[in-house]
Structure formats: structure tokens, C-alpha cells
């Protein structure tokens, strides 16, 4: 479940946690993607996230923005259906929500679960996929655009939780365009990135909480 949390949290954040590929045909492709994504120093992208959870009667659609500035800044803004902001600067994670209208500050090192998620993100954006190849089988579904499908190996802790993860890359292969996750319990999440700006300057307000 912990692994599941990490996995799904990261996917919910818009990033795949654990890419693995024993298929030698996919390996060069992964390497190529690694190289391209490693050039991302700043990122500003809108997202539309659809959550189909067993606990919900209907799918929930969230809209918002993600900001990333290497090496330590990360922000997640949700505008619909609720206002929520999460900003990570180094070891500190701050959250604001419209319910409490208060800023909650936590140390990442004191919250291992969140820390793991954040570290996983860092691995993804640094383009070091090779570190994540242990637990998943990978195959290419399409080459234009590139769509990769990852299925947990039987030995992986995620095997009992995740059915598959499908990642669709942008035409220029510099970033992910869409992620779809299917869980074994029929929950699913899809995340579509829109208006993605890579390596452009990010407004300071992105790192501020209301």
C-alpha cells in the first residue's frame, strides 16, 4: 500500500514513478526519452485530471497547473473543483486549501511518504529512468506519438495494486502528454497536460500561497 501510495501519488502529481523495462527493444527508446527530459529545467503546465475512484459515485475532474523549477521547487495548484495549493521548496512542503484558508507547513524529511514521492519525481525529471527499471515491464504501444505501457512484474510490490500505466509523450518527446493508470480495484486516474511550457521563466506567484 505504501508503494501504491508512492506510485499513485506521483501519477496523480503528473509523473510516473517506476519505469522498468526488460524488453531490450524499448531500452534505447527509454534512454532517448531520458536524455530529452533531462534538459527540462523549468516546467509550467496546465492539467486536467480525471479520477474514477470506487469511493466516489461519479468521476471527479480536477483542473489546475503544475510548476517545476530545478532542482528543488515544485508547485501544484488546483483551481477546480476546489482551490488548493501545494508548494515544495527543498525540505519544506506548504499546503493551502479553501476549507481552512490556512497554510500548513511540513518538513519533508519528517514525512517520509511525501518525501519518497517528491524524490521519485526528481528522479523522473532528472531523466534517470534506469534507476526505475527494476519493477516494471515496458512495451511501446505506439511510436507516433510515443505511448509506453508499464505493467508491474510479479515480484514488484505494485503487482497487487496496479494493472497498468500508460504514458503518452508529446510529439517533441520532451514531456509527457498524458498518463493513464488502471488499478486492480478498478480505480483509475488519467492526467492530461495542456499548454506545457518548458524552460520558460516562472512567475514568482507560483511559489506563493494565498
Amino acid at each position: 500500500m505504501f508503494k501504491k501510495f508512492i506510485f499513485i501519488s506521483i501519477l496523480c502529481l503528473g509523473f510516473s514513478p517506476s519505469l522498468g523495462c526488460s524488453d531490450t527493444e524499448v531500452t534505447p527508446l527509454l534512454k532517448r526519452l531520458e536524455e530529452k527530459i533531462s534538459g527540462v529545467k523549468t516546467l509550467e503546465t496546465g492539467f486536467i485530471q480525471e479520477k474514477k475512484l470506487a469511493v466516489f459515485n461519479r468521476a471527479v475532474v480536477l483542473e489546475g497547473k503544475v510548476f517545476i523549477q530545478e532542482p528543488d521547487f515544485f508547485a501544484w495548484h488546483t483551481d477546480k473543483p476546489v482551490h488548493y495549493i501545494m508548494v515544495i521548496k527543498g525540505d519544506i512542503i506548504k499546503q493551502w486549501d479553501e476549507d481552512t484558508r490556512q497554510v500548513q507547513s511540513l518538513s519533508l524529511s519528517r514525512n517520509p511518504a511525501l518525501l519518497v514521492a517528491v524524490n521519485q519525481m526528481k528522479v523522473w525529471f532528472s531523466g534517470k529512468y534506469s534507476s526505475l527499471l527494476k519493477d516494471y515491464e515496458a512495451k511501446a504501444i505506439s511510436s507516433k506519438p510515443i505511448i509506453l505501457e508499464f505493467t508491474p512484474k510479479v515480484s514488484a510490490e505494485a503487482f497487487n495494486i496496479i494493472n497498468k500505466v500508460r504514458m503518452t509523450f508529446q510529439e517533441d518527446e520532451r514531456y509527457i502528454a498524458r498518463i493513464d493508470i488502471e488499478e486492480k480495484n478498478q480505480d483509475s486516474t488519467s492526467l492530461v497536460f495542456i499548454n506545457t511550457k518548458i524552460n520558460s521563466s516562472i512567475n514568482h506567484s507560483a511559489w506563493e500561497l494565498r
Partner: peptide
């Protein structure tokens, strides 16, 4: 609201 945050899962 908690379930809609990144840590909701």
C-alpha cells in the same frame, strides 16, 4: 477535499 489533493490516494 483531502482526496482531491496530490496526497489523497
Amino acid at each position: 477535499h483531502k482526496l482531491l489533493t496530490p496526497g489523497g490516494t
